[in-house]
Write a protein that binds this DNA or RNA. Structure first.
Lengths: 348, 348
DNA sequence: AATAGGCTTGCAAACGTTCTCAAGGAACGT
DNA sequence: ACGTTCCTTGAGAACGTTTGCAAGCCTATT
């Protein structure tokens, strides 16, 4: 019960293999009558072109790769979903890989993708400065950076305007009277954290709020790191009255830390999340958040990819998507006498 | 700057193509000296076997498919991550597709997977009773059902013991005094919902709690459906004092509905979620949940797949994974006089 | 009516790999 | 010295598709 091949269809339709190929691929110079005959023969035999054979001949696979640090992060999962929604109707399949934010592993995975001759690559790279990254990315017919900037890369990119939303958030907090605003940022090897730190510093400057190096914490992007950062922040002699978490993982850590320290939101401390998640959307009271549309990001990336796969090579395109701050119920004026966190209180 | 092929390596090493192939594939009957020469030539040229060509020759691709309704659902995303973690070190790549719970679309996507000659399929099928589904699944060298049962299928399966955890939950609620316990289940076309409904009815029976058809609601698996179901439940003349949501989407709807109705958890109503999510884990107060380990599910599925791809065909294996109920803070004794929901109150 | 030129079609060569088959060569026993 | 056997290697076919090339046919133009 093997699959029918072009030869089978050719025999059935009484024509040559090449004619079948031409007919099925909508090429000109096939007599309509013959075309119909081929089509019905193909239909009758349930013919499905063999992707591997086509791939070997044409060099294309009709598959694209998505490289993220962790597909189980809902942000990346949403991107994957939205991208697939745009790619699938065009016949493209989506292959995913998890870099675990390890540049070396990522390089191997990209190499594996290329070995599979994937037509395109969408990537939220672990380290924008990894050596040779630009070349690795450029080895695909089309590639799109997902909220990343790789120096000297000629790839397309979809970026988020983090500065806008974060600026709003900080102005909102300052308006409530906060002067000690902390930012738990992620790794500066990725654009998001870098832009947030820049925007944070710039906004404080503009508001004439003194900057305190203790309050701006780059680091990893894990829940654990967020937890630790918040714990340390609240043990400072002069702790912040508001904390902004740079992504959803960091926010989860922040949230757990505040819970374990027995602090109330927003009475004891104000918090702002970057990235909308189920938690920020449904929590009671609702949580302030710097939002962006991950569906739009994934869809736009897929569209850029498709455009480049279709058309002639244009010069790299950069698309910047909006972000916005939404004040809900997790920020309030700072308490007059900041509640002291007993030193040494950690998670049970 | 094309990729090196076997021929290039052969020329470089001064041997024939077939010898190179043998040497690189660790086949016997290659002189050690020749093998070394081939290996270093391969290294020097940066040779990478062409997956398409190999695939055409061998019929295998080293890629497996994952078919779920929606990869942006964190449950499925976790499965994907865990599966990839097990597959990737073995050189397998993961291709994903979203069926949107549409059996027809799913069938097309499976067909596309097979056209790509994927070696295996992991699938949480939309409708276990879809005609021809068993054959479609069996068309792969290996396939694993993800918490699904397809009648007559010879595929391996990883199942969750929903009945155990749900039974615990109901006993817990009954122990608090609840007699009106509602279950917002999903589609009966999928094992999870079916098993939960059976277990729910059986457990009520065993506890001698009268069953009320109004309180057991199969339906879709969407947030909207959960919202609507809860709204309708609370408009009943004799509303439930506790509601269990059958999955995370339904629970999100449940949660939003209760918030919009202005009810307090657990003072006014007790709730139990099936599936741990960021919301259930971090919410304050923490939410009662019937847990299962999605990582384990994904990893086990991948291991079953790998075992079948490696070894001789055994008979189908079914692995059942544990679930457990965790009481936290979202259930309490039912209020003496159930707070009436004003008719017509819906979300703004 | 002859010929040019455009449609249509088929043949056969690639794409890069694996694998069967046959043959060369060495070692060994008689 | 010869035959047998086993190890080692290479030639070449095959996987299923696309595509360049050439040949055949038809129409139209001169």
């Amino acid at each position: 019960m093997k699959n029918a091949t072009l030869r089978d269809v050719a025999r059935e339709a009484g024509v040559s293999v090449s004619t079948v190929s031409r007919a099925l691929n909508d090429q000109p110079f096939v007599r309509p009558e013959v075309r119909d005959r081929v089509l019905s023969a193909s239909e009758a035999l349930g013919y499905r072109p063999d992707v591997a054979a086509r791939s070997m001949r044409t060099g294309t696979t009709g598959a694209v790769g998505l490289m993220v640090s962790d597909i189980s992060n809902p942000l990346f999962a949403s991107i994957a979903k939205a991208a697939d929604l745009a790619l699938s109707p065009r016949g493209y399949a989506l292959m995913i890989a998890n870099s675990a934010n390890d540049p070396v592993h990522e390089a191997e995975l990209i190499s594996a993708f290329r070995q599979r001759r994937l037509d395109g690559l969408m990537i939220a790279t672990a380290n924008e400065g990894a050596i040779g990254l630009g070349d690795r990315i450029a080895s695909f017919q089309a590639s799109v950076l997902l909220d990343r900037e790789v120096p000297g890369s000629r790839a397309d990119a979809v970026l988020s305007d983090h500065a806008a939303g974060l600026g709003e958030a900080i102005r909102h907090l300052a308006g409530l009277g906060h002067r000690r605003i902390a930012l738990v940022a992620g790794t500066t090897a990725q654009r998001g954290s870098r832009v947030r730190i820049e925007a944070y510093l710039a906004q404080l400057e503009q508001l004439r709020i003194p900057r305190d190096p203790d309050l701006c914490r780059p680091g990893e992007m894990t829940v654990e790191d967020g937890y630790r950062a918040v714990t340390e922040l609240l043990e400072l002699p002069d702790p912040p009255s508001a904390i902004i978490a740079g992504n959803n993982q960091l926010f989860a850590g922040l949230f757990a830390a505040i819970r374990d320290l027995g602090l109330r939101i927003p009475e004891d401390i104000s918090v702002v999340a970057c990235e909308e998640t189920e938690l920020t959307a449904l929590h009671n009271p609702p949580l302030d958040v710097v939002r962006r549309n991950m569906d739009e990001l994934g869809r736009t990336a897929a569209e850029l990819l498709l455009a480049r796969l279709d058309g002639p090579q244009r010069r790299p395109r950069r698309i910047v998507l909006a972000t916005g701050f939404e004040a809900r119920g997790s920020s309030a004026p700072p308490p007059p006498h900041p509640r002291l966190v007993r030193s040494g209180v950690h998670a049970a």
